[in-house]
């Protein structure tokens, strides 16, 4: 059976934020009828200077965005609206012995997902492949899942007034593609795959290094998370491995493009 997981090699992270940008770009511009992958408000696109797919009719946010002239304020607004994944720097030590690490906040797609357990309406659910999703049509926005998630991975979609979170780009994964953040990362920090397939990169890393999941210090309260953090920097993927992954990706993309044309 398939069990999707992600490895985040923190030691390789540059803090460039390409994963966050890719996540926004991907999910903003994805047109899908499936509700769990509903595009985000076009206002975020506007704030980021991305092309707007469609503008929500006379929404409050449009007015509010027009007032946001300072880039810092605009970024803060994006931060409020977009929290599916986030990277922030954690400095430590005192000069001259200082170090910087980047923590990646993302839904952990836990096996014992407390958000799924507490959801009264079944809006939060887990697929057989382990991906945790939210059906906004069923969400009453009671906030129980936010209080239940120890990884702070859930947010409110201000337009639909329902819960929103990382989907592991399920719409892409179902087509055989990698999540947008994984595909975009220039330093190969985020590695995605099937943990039940012993030949997958994720599977081999987890088997060899036993990295902690959930946080760099391990899971919180027995949730069995499936995002593993490699703080040690032991893992060095070969160029061949990366090339193979990108070739595979390119082939799928080509096939999809030819099908659509």
């Amino acid at each position: 059976m398939t069990r999707y997981a992600m490895v985040i090699d923190i030691s390789r992270c540059l803090g460039c934020g390409a994963c966050v940008a890719a996540c926004i770009a991907e999910n903003l511009n994805t047109s899908s009828d499936e509700l769990e992958f509903k595009p985000k408000p076009s206002i975020i696109a506007g704030l980021l200077g991305l092309p707007r797919k469609e503008i929500p009719p006379a929404e409050y946010f449009v007015e509010k965005a027009a007032e946001q002239v300072e880039p810092e304020k605009a970024q803060e607004e994006v931060r409020k609206l977009w929290l599916r994944t986030e990277v922030y720097a954690i400095p430590s030590g005192t000069y001259p012995n200082v170090s910087l690490m980047f923590y990646h906040r993302i839904c952990q797609h836990c096996t014992n997902a407390p958000c799924v357990t507490v959801c009264p309406t079944g809006a939060s659910f887990q697929r057989k492949d382990g991906i945790v999703l939210v059906d906004p049509n069923k969400c009453i926005l009671c906030g129980a899942c936010i209080a239940a998630c120890p990884y702070a991975a859930r947010q409110v979609d201000l337009l639909t007034k329902t819960i929103d979170k990382c989907t592991f780009c399920a719409h892409r994964v179902d087509k055989g593609l990698l999540p947008a953040c994984v595909e975009t990362c220039p330093a190969h920090v985020r590695i995605f795959g099937d943990l039940d397939n012993p030949n997958s990169e994720v599977s081999r890393i987890v088997a060899k290094y036993h990295p902690p999941a959930g946080t760099p210090h391990g899971p919180i309260r027995g949730t069995e998370p499936f995002v593993f953090y490699m703080p040690s920097g032991n893992y060095k993927p070969s160029v061949k491995e990366i090339e193979q992954e990108h070739l595979k990706e390119a082939k799928i993309m080509k096939k999809l493009e030819s099908e659509s044309s």
């Binding site: 357990t117 507490v118 959801c119 309406t121 079944g122 069923k138 009671c142």
Partner: peptide, 12 residues
């Protein structure tokens, strides 16, 4: 959906 999607594991 509190009725239609009743989740027996949910306290709410």
């Amino acid at each position: 959906w509190m009725i239609k999607g009743f989740n027996a594991f949910s306290r709410i």
